[in-house]
């Protein structure tokens, strides 16, 4: 297809012809719109962007986008994205998935991706449920949520992704709400621009298995204070908020992971000098 010059890119240029098969009303449709708008506003042509996902409803997103895509293995979006980014640092690499994929089966990778701080953006469409397998508790599900696999709820404390991200070294931590397309696109734009590992946790309602999440639109609110670069303050905010403060919550100063190869390349002249007789 003819891709316009970067300044002329629109969200449409990042959407594929494949029609999403998400349920009507699923929050992920809006996430797709926000993300394609964010990419258009950044002016990166589609061939310089790669979408990497794991397994789950939200992990279908690469198929619905016009850029490089990789629908990976359950829980492994971040290792795949890491491998791609270190091999091709010039690409904009975005990993995406849900709370089951990212915090349950892939939870270990989440922690270590934050530590490694590779220049990636990780978009988690969090609906507090395993949707693709028809409605079981995920790590972020409320402990008393009744479902077929854990009647009466798991009784287990929900996973705190933003706190774990901060503690593990993520450089950018934000929470968005899928219903706010403009705001989410703006947060995603900042996340992609931010060097190092960026987590965008998007509250994205599952209207099929968690219909009560339709009320999220009335519960979310802009974060009352701007982003901080102080991890201690961020930790206090994240430990005490109720999960509905929307916005960029933390932006750190850590140097992103840089493959050793790229340093060698930069100092090639210096290296040559060492061999001058």
């Amino acid at each position: 297809m003819n891709v316009p010059s970067p300044a002329m890119l629109s969200a449409k240029n990042f959407k594929s012809d494949t029609k999403p098969i998400w349920c009507p009303g699923c929050g992920d449709y809006a996430v797709l719109t926000s993300l394609t708008r964010a990419l258009a506003s950044l002016g990166r042509p589609p061939e310089e962007v790669a979408m990497i996902s794991g397994i789950g409803c939200s992990s279908r997103i690469p198929a619905y986008m016009n850029c490089y895509g990789f629908h990976g293995v359950h829980g492994r979006a971040l290792p795949l994205a890491t491998g791609l980014k270190v091999a091709r640092p010039d690409l904009t690499v975005i990993a995406a998935g849900g709370d089951g994929d990212g915090y349950s089966i892939g939870g270990n990778h989440f922690m270590h991706a934050c530590r490694r701080n590779v220049d990636l953006t990780y978009i988690v469409m969090d609906n507090h449920v395993y949707g693709m397998t028809k409605g079981q508790s995920s790590p972020t599900t409320e402990p008393d949520w009744d479902n077929a696999l854990t009647p009466g709820g798991t009784g287990v404390r929900p996973f705190q992704p933003l706190v774990v991200a901060l503690a593990s070294g993520a450089n950018f931590v934000a929470r968005a709400f899928s219903g706010d397309i403009v705001g989410t696109a703006d947060i995603m734009t900042q996340a992609i621009k931010s060097p190092g590992f960026s987590l965008v946790e998007v509250l994205s309602p599952c209207v099929t298995f968690r219909p009560e999440q339709r009320e999220w639109k009335d519960l979310v609110r802009p974060s009352p204070v701007p982003a901080t670069d102080d991890p201690a303050r961020a930790a206090r905010r994240l430990m005490t908020d109720d999960g509905f403060n929307i916005g960029v919550l933390y932006t750190g100063q850590r140097q992103p992971y840089r493959p050793k190869g790229s340093e060698t390349e930069k100092s090639l002249d210096a290296l040559c000098q060492e061999f001058v007789i």
């Binding site: 089966i105 395993y130 693709m132 397998t133 028809k134 079981q136 077929a148 696999l149 854990t150 009647p151 009466g152």
Partner: peptide, 20 residues
Amino acid sequence: PGYPITPQTPILEKLTEFHA
């Protein structure tokens, strides 16, 4: 112990029903 996956999940859900 169990983890849901299509097309197995109904086995675990039925066992959970028995348990409940």
